[in-house]
């Protein structure tokens, strides 16, 4: 009997939560559901944590799962804000419109995609063309010697390509930015399930090359600078070079809402785009959407 009472109380609470959630009113208690990109999840959690002090009446529930998951959730109307490390595809927008959802896009920051090499790898700079010939379907480079280096600890000379699973936002962005529109990866890359796994594997494998968000770079990795073309300047991936867009493979990070945000959701998004919110982004290793001055 006691259990029954507890259960119905919990159900009642749940119902109450979803009600305030739908209304999104700024007065009273509101819950904002926030879901999506694993690239953004650390920042999203930091924002949610800090926002408690700004408006104690708003609780923000953050979950990861990937850009595709977040976008699917906003289409199905189960979240208020979706995080994505890629923009919505035309077909996704079409599906959303068919369901009466009108996605509105906000750029909340930028992420420099760093190229990872083993720390013993002598390469200090790479060009986009070299990356494309290593990763691309019609690229011919499979040996380190073809890039003019000999990698210590890698007697086989084989380039071990480390990539991501084929529906992560990182995978899609790297494909479009480096290989070119409509091009595909060469088969046979080791497709890791998460940016951290890429960093781990490359740091332990002398023959490897990988890519992931700059925030996942560790001291055990070598991060070369990247040239847009042979005669262009070589730009190292940093927060500054991502903000001024001089780094060639920096991608925007998005949040999506259903229509123009209102109430608590609007308050939260405005705060994210304010100096305070943007500085949290910088502290987590990502570039802000616009230049900001942060202390520390």
């Amino acid at each position: 009997m006691k259990n029954l009472i507890a259960l119905s109380a919990a159900l009642g609470l749940l119902a109450a939560c979803s009600r305030t959630d739908r209304s999104g009113a700024s007065g009273g208690h509101a819950v904002i559901q926030n879901k999506g990109s694993d690239t953004l999840v650390n920042v999203a959690q930091a924002w949610a944590e800090a926002y408690k002090k700004v408006d104690a009446n708003v609780a923000i529930a953050v979950t990861g799962g990937g850009s595709g998951t977040g976008i699917a959730a906003i289409i199905n109307g189960t979240v208020d804000i979706a995080n994505a490390s890629r923009s919505m595809k035309a077909e996704e927008i079409k599906t959303a419109e068919a369901k009466g959802v009108h996605p509105k896009e906000f750029i909340v920051g930028y992420d420099a995609l760093a190229v990872f090499l083993h720390k013993d790898n002598p390469i200090g700079e790479v060009t986009l063309a070299q990356l494309a010939s290593v990763y691309g379907e019609d690229g011919t480079v499979t040996k380190w010697s073809q890039l003019g280096v000999q990698v210590p600890g890698c007697p086989s000379d084989e380039i071990i390509r480390v990539s991501r699973q084929n529906n992560s936002g990182t995978f899609v962005y790297f494909k479009e930015a480096v290989l070119g529109e409509g091009k595909d990866y060469k088969l046979g890359s080791r497709d890791m399930h998460g940016s951290k796994d890429v960093a781990d594997l490359v740091s332990k494998t002398p023959c490897a090359i990988g890519y992931s968000g700059l925030a996942y770079a560790t001291p055990a990795l070598k991060v070369p600078c990247v040239k847009k073309a042979d005669d262009a300047a070589c730009v190292p991936p940093t927060i500054a070079s991502a903000v001024d867009r001089s780094y060639p493979i920096a991608r925007p990070l998005f949040m999506y809402t259903n229509g123009e945000p209102t109430g608590a959701t609007k308050g939260y998004l405005d705060w994210i785009l304010s100096d305070v919110g943007q500085c949290i982004m910088v502290n987590k290793g990502y570039a802000p959407a616009r230049p900001v001055k942060c202390d520390g």
Partner: peptide
Amino acid sequence: AAELGETAVGSTH
């Protein structure tokens, strides 16, 4: 396991 989580429900993939 790696791909299902981020695939749009009902798509060909």
